[in-house]
Each structure stands twice: as structure tokens, then as C-alpha cells.
Design a protein around this nucleic acid. Structure first.
Lengths: 206, 206
DNA sequence: CGTGAATTTGAACGACGTTCAACAAATAAA
DNA sequence: TTTATTTGTTGAACGTCGTTCAAATTCACG
């Protein structure tokens, strides 16, 4: 009754518009970075009047959040295909897998630099929606699982914290390593340093 | 000749205006974050017309860079007073000192959260001026010095890279730990995790 | 004082995200 | 088919922003 009935045809068109909008935003972000994304450009890209954007998304922040979410999903897939087949039965194997997860993260960041940066540069006025927070938390499994094999004495909460710590440490190395503000670190060096850190953290007991 | 002669009185007043401007910017950033800094507010704060700001600084980015630089200087002082008196003669002492540097960094970030964030959120159109890059590189000594005692087999360049890695790892943990986007990590837990990581990295040989 | 240079002013500009009254298209009713 | 109603789209207009610059003001000095 009070809820407006929407024809499926309309809903489908809206979905198509939304996907075109996300695609246009991703393209523009890849080309010139998140900060030069303009509402007027996007409207032109998808052939809609300026005001029409706000029939598709609530505002530009909501669009950026969708792009972020999509990037996180792709990152998750990359981690999955790169490491899911690796064994974790022995401690050494688990460590190798963790190193692989980190390397995959580095590669992904390198190959999707502007989109990857966006995830962390995004500053929302309103708090993260639950579905977006879940998107992020799901990814930690790729770390927590091997880590459990490496540090079996940690309880669930300590393991979660430790997984976050390890992720954050690797993320920091990559984040600062890929900035061009100071001297650029050679690709191989960066990869080596990440492997060193992960192995150090794992070797040095819990 | 071509250089315009500036009376010392004028130069002094300019300097005073600049310091007032930086102070006003710092206050506003502390209160409401870097992104809500407005030229009109700052002009009002220091009792100058809107256009007058551009007699004091080139543009808002230049002001933010000055604030950043000042924050880095305060961070350097904090590291200095917290760790300079600590011994580094034995390996264990050097490690303790490195842990203390990291804890100092955490404390500083906590107590200066908006200013500290600014340093890394700042995205300049033009490349970093040399003096600003030097500001940052100077701080790495606080890490490289103890690290040299811990990993004496590393040559100068490897030591520089390793110091960067260690800084970036700790920075990542703090950066993500202090974000409120996901669940906030308790203060003590964060401190413990940082100490764990630094000790792990140091213990696990070079 | 008077006069030329240095300094400050604030209205104006262009770009931005967002809104909303007017318009058009689609659908339902007659 | 014609008319009425609901639904979807439009783009001019608004408020805010950083920045500019011609004009007004203040200052230095004979």
C-alpha cells in the first residue's frame, strides 16, 4: 500500500543505469584518481542529466562506496584463486600461504592502484553500512585461517586481533611503498621486505 | 634591483601573520578535521580579509604543508625526548629502544589524531618540496640508529630499506588501529601488538 | 601635508554537489 | 481514441568553495 509498486522493467533499467554508473566511475578513477571524479562528467558518461544521478544513487559518496565494495570483492577473488589451493597442513606450508596472501595483496594494489587507494582514502560522513563492514571483515579470513595453523595457542579473539595486526603491518608497507612521495622502492625489494616481515612475525613464536 | 626591497617591519608582520594563520589552522584541524578547514574561517580567525590569505601563503595546500611540517617536528621532538637517553650498547637495549620509539609514535598519533592523520591524507598537486621531504627522512634516524645495532650485517642501503619497512609496518598497525571504521581496538591491545611486531621483526634475525 | 608605492580589501568568478519545479513519458481510466 | 494520473527525467538555480584582482586604503618619506 504505502510502499510504491515498481514495475520490474523499471527496476531492471535502474539496475542497468547503476551498473553503467559504477563502470563509468571506475574508469574515471583509474584514469585520473578518485579526487577528480565529478558528478557532471559521470552524468555525461552514462547519458543522463545531471540531476538524474540522484535517481540512481543517494549521492556521490554512496557511489564511491559501491565502487569500493566492488574493488574489495575483486581483491577477495584474487586472494581466493591465488591461495585457496595451497596446503596448510604443516606450519611451514601455512607460513608460505600467508606470504602468498601478502604478495597477492601487493600485486593487486600495484595493478589497481587508484581503485585500491580509494578504499582507504574514502571518508564518509555517515558511518559505514553494515554490509560494507562485512565486506571487509570477510577478507580477514584469508589471513586468520593460515594464522590459526601457525599460532594454534591463540584463542579466537586473540587470533582476530593478530590477523588484523599482520594485515595492517603488510598494508602499511605496501601503502608507503607504493607512494611516490619519497623515493620509489624497487618492485622486488618491496616484495622481499613483505615476505621478510611476514616470516619474521610467524617465526618469532606467538 | 629587480628584487623588491621589503622593510624588516613588514617582513616581521608577515611572519607574525603566518604564525597566527598556522595556529588557527591547527586549532581548526584539531577541532573538526582537515577536510572542514575553510579559507573564509581562517581569514576571520586571524582578522584578515578573505583575499589577504594569499598574501601570507600561496594557497591552502601550502598552509597544510606547513602544518604538516610542524606536526612532524613535534613528533621528532617527542621521539627525541622519549628515547635519546636510552642506551643502545647491547642488542636487547637497542630492541627496547626501538619498541619505545614505536610506542611514542602510537602515543603521539593518539594524542594528535587529526593533525597526525593530516600528514598522510594530504595530497598535493605539485611534488613535495625538498625541505618537506627532508623533514620526513630525518625522522627515520630514530629507527635506523637502533636498527643498526640490531642488524649490524646490513649495509647502509639495506638498513634504510629495513627502517622504512619497520616504520611502515608499525604505521599501518597504528593507522588501522586508530580508525573507528571497524571495531575499535583497546588501547593496551594496540600497544601490545605493536611491541609484539617490533620484537618479532628484530628477533627473527635479519 | 602630498604623492607614489606597498598593502589590504571584498566583490566577483568559475567549479562543485545537490535540489526541485517544470516538463515529458508511460500507464490507467473513460 | 481521448483524457487523467502517476512516474520518470530534466537542467536551471542554489549555496559553498578556493582563488583572483581592480579598487580602496595605508604607509614611507620629502
Amino acid at each position: 500500500m504505502s510502499a510504491k509498486a515498481i514495475s520490474t522493467a523499471t527496476a531492471d533499467r535502474r539496475q542497468a543505469q547503476l551498473e553503467a554508473l559504477i563502470a563509468a566511475a571506475e574508469k574515471r578513477i583509474c584514469d585520473s584518481g578518485m579526487h577528480s571524479l565529478k558528478a557532471r562528467d559521470l552524468a555525461a558518461d552514462i547519458g543522463v542529466a545531471l540531476g538524474g544521478l540522484y535517481n540512481i544513487v543517494q549521492d556521490i559518496d554512496a557511489l564511491l562506496l559501491l565502487v569500493s565494495s566492488r574493488t574489495l570483492a575483486r581483491l577477495g577473488e584474487a586472494a581466493q584463486t591465488a591461495t585457496a589451493h595451497l596446503p596448510v597442513s604443516t606450519r611451514a606450508e601455512a607460513i608460505d600461504r600467508l606470504v602468498m596472501v601478502a604478495q597477492t595483496y601487493l600485486t593487486f594494489a600495484r595493478e589497481n592502484l587508484p581503485l585500491w587507494r580509494m578504499i582507504f582514502e574514502l571518508r564518509l560522513d555517515s558511518p559505514l553500512p553494515d554490509w560494507a563492514a562485512q565486506d571487509q571483515l570477510r577478507l580477514f579470513r584469508h589471513i586468520a585461517e593460515p594464522l590459526h595453523a601457525i599460532m594454534p595457542e591463540l584463542d579466537t579473539v586473540a587470533l582476530t586481533v593478530r590477523a588484523r595486526t599482520l594485515f595492517a603491518a603488510v598494508h602499511g608497507i605496501i601503502s608507503i611503498g607504493l607512494e611516490e612521495r619519497l623515493i620509489a622502492v624497487p618492485a622486488q625489494k618491496l616484495s622481499d621486505e613483505i615476505a621478510w616481515l611476514v616470516r619474521s612475525a610467524c617465526r618469532a613464536h606467538a
